[in-house]
């Protein structure tokens, strides 16, 4: 297990380094931020001075070297726009996005898996067909449109829930969170559902397909032949087998939820880091973009690492073969 973890950690580091090079080179290629930032009437000398101050006059490899050296010390650069450390600006927005993503993930798992298993056990029933039909809508309708429709129905027509913002927040483990206050919770529900719908549909379909496959296996029939209750056959024998692919997808999708909550955050005016990224790209605020992308990479790589560990806990066959290798 230890050997496996160390090797897996090495792969993760390699992925982060590769992404750092790509991100830095990619952002460099977008354009010169000074053109956007500086007063159009500035003289050539002023532009040159600004470029020198921001370190933009140096060659790419030198800029990258400085970036890496600073990054290793936890400094991802200073925002051109705000004049403050980019990482600090992002971290202010991170809890809001993480909260939104985690609540959405919880919803999609807590609703998606039971519905998917149900549809898998009774594929020809009316409920099973309805669930599958609904899931097609869930991931084929554009996300932003679903969000707008949710606002229209629940905020405008029915007036049950607020249309945007984060509402009242309280401190929880040193972070500002919404879900512990009633006002915050009402603000959280709609964006969380909006972000969850696509993943929920994906999990429903995955759980259904795997349930259908697993429930035809001999070991499920054998479990029934042992006289186990239908409940135990489904909750233990089938569920534990379908969790292996489901956990993989959940891990991958959590990363993308955090990274691409942008649409939902924009529709619901949720003050997360997705909104910050859009603003930063418009202003070519290079340190913030780079810091955001690096942080996203770090989150996704960490989640994947975590998923691999959970995966090996779920499937004994993986544990053994990887330990040998």
């Amino acid at each position: 297990m230890l050997v496996y973890l160390v090797r897996r950690l090495g792969q993760s580091l390699l992925a982060i380094v590769a992404m750092a090079v790509l991100v830095f080179a990619g952002v460099y290629a977008i354009g010169n931020p000074v053109d956007v930032l500086i007063n159009p009437e500035a003289t050539q000398a002023e532009i040159a001075a600004t470029m020198q101050r921001l370190g933009l006059d140096r060659p790419l490899y030198e800029q990258f070297g400085i970036f890496v050296m600073n990054a290793l010390q936890g400094d991802l650069g200073t925002s051109f726009v705000y004049g403050r450390p980019a990482l600090a600006i992002i971290m202010e927005r991170l809890p809001a996005t993480m909260e939104l993503a985690l609540v959405a993930l919880f919803l999609s798992v807590a609703i998606g898996i039971p519905l998917g298993v149900w549809a898998g056990l009774r594929p020809d029933s009316i409920a099973g067909r309805t669930i599958m039909g609904g899931s097609i809508l869930g991931f084929s309708l554009p996300n932003f449109w679903q969000g707008m429709l949710l606002i229209l129905v629940f905020a405008v027509l029915l007036g049950w829930l607020p249309a945007g913002g984060r509402g009242e927040t309280t401190e929880f483990l040193g972070l500002q969170v919404s879900f512990l206050t009633w006002d915050g919770l009402t603000h959280l529900i709609l964006p969380a559902i909006n972000l969850a719908l696509f993943k929920m549909s994906l999990i429903i379909r995955l759980a259904r397909a795997n349930t259908r496959e697993v429930s035809l296996q001999d070991y499920v029939k054998f479990a029934r032949a042992k006289g186990l209750s239908g409940r135990r056959v489904v909750m233990v024998h089938i569920l534990k087998n379908i969790m292996i692919p489901v956990v993989t997808i959940i891990g991958l999708e959590l990363g993308s939820m955090v990274a691409f909550a942008i649409v939902t955050e924009t529709v619901f005016a949720w003050p997360g880091m997705g909104k910050l990224l859009i603003d930063s790209i418009n202003l070519l605020d290079r340190p913030v973009i780079v810091a955001y992308l690096m942080l996203t990479v770090l989150i996704i790589v960490s989640i994947n690492l975590l998923v691999d560990v959970i995966y090996s806990l779920l499937d004994p066959r993986i544990r053994l073969s990887e330990m040998k290798g």
Partner: peptide
């Protein structure tokens, strides 16, 4: 039937590689 299965009538299957659940001890 559920009361009888495994209790008074047991069954052994054809393919032993498939009859035990791979993820349970």
């Amino acid at each position: 039937l559920r009361g009888l299965r495994g209790k008074r009538i047991a069954m052994i299957f054809q393919d032993p590689m498939m009859t035990l659940n791979p993820v349970l001890r």
